[in-house]
């Protein structure tokens, strides 16, 4: 892995099922994530994805790219435009630093998830790749 490497984009359809299944799988029962009427009553046009699901999708993006040997060390995300049903989010990523040591390397990857409304998520993932972990980073 090298500084400046780009991760292949990942497009995720934002279905009602993904939003509700993600909210429940993360044990987040805030009604705005599963009840469209309640969401509208609170001024939102529809239900929207919860932050725990977004966090998991950012982790998935990096993990799928680097393979099972990669260990996430830090994930820091900020949300912007909500993920509403019917939208699509495209995750893109770029390696901004790589530090090698005797046991492997530690990389920082900046991730952006954009939907039709703008940037849903911007984040920074710090990931550890142990030497000889058997990973074959996917090369675009």
């Amino acid at each position: 892995m090298r500084t400046g490497d780009e991760l292949a984009p990942l497009r995720i359809p934002i279905t009602r099922t993904l939003i509700v299944a993600g909210a429940i799988a993360t044990r987040d029962y805030q009604d705005v994530h599963h009840d469209a009427e309640a969401a509208r009553a609170k001024g939102s046009p529809d239900i929207f994805m919860n932050i725990l699901t977004t966090n998991g999708l950012v982790g998935r993006y990096v993990t799928e790219h680097l393979g099972p040997a990669a260990e996430l060390r830090e994930v820091a995300i900020r949300l912007g435009a909500p993920n509403y049903p019917g939208d699509e989010m495209e995750l893109t990523g770029r390696v901004t630093s790589v530090e090698a040591d005797a046991d492997g390397e530690t990389a920082v990857i900046e991730v952006v998830g954009a939907n039709a409304l703008g940037q849903h998520v911007t984040g920074r993932v710090t990931v550890r790749l142990p030497r000889g972990g058997g990973h074959e980073p996917a090369r675009p």
């Binding site: 799988a25 044990r27 998991g56 999708l57 950012v58 993990t63 799928e64 099972p68």
Partner: peptide, 29 residues
């Protein structure tokens, strides 16, 4: 269930995906 909902690979070593961290602290319904 979490991996299924998010389309996340299930870790082969049986560990929890790191980004599930907060899930273990959620109070639920």
């Amino acid at each position: 269930h979490w991996c299924e909902a998010l389309g996340h690979p299930v870790p082969v070593d049986g560990t929890a995906p790191a980004t599930m961290l907060q899930v273990w602290t959620m109070a639920g319904l």
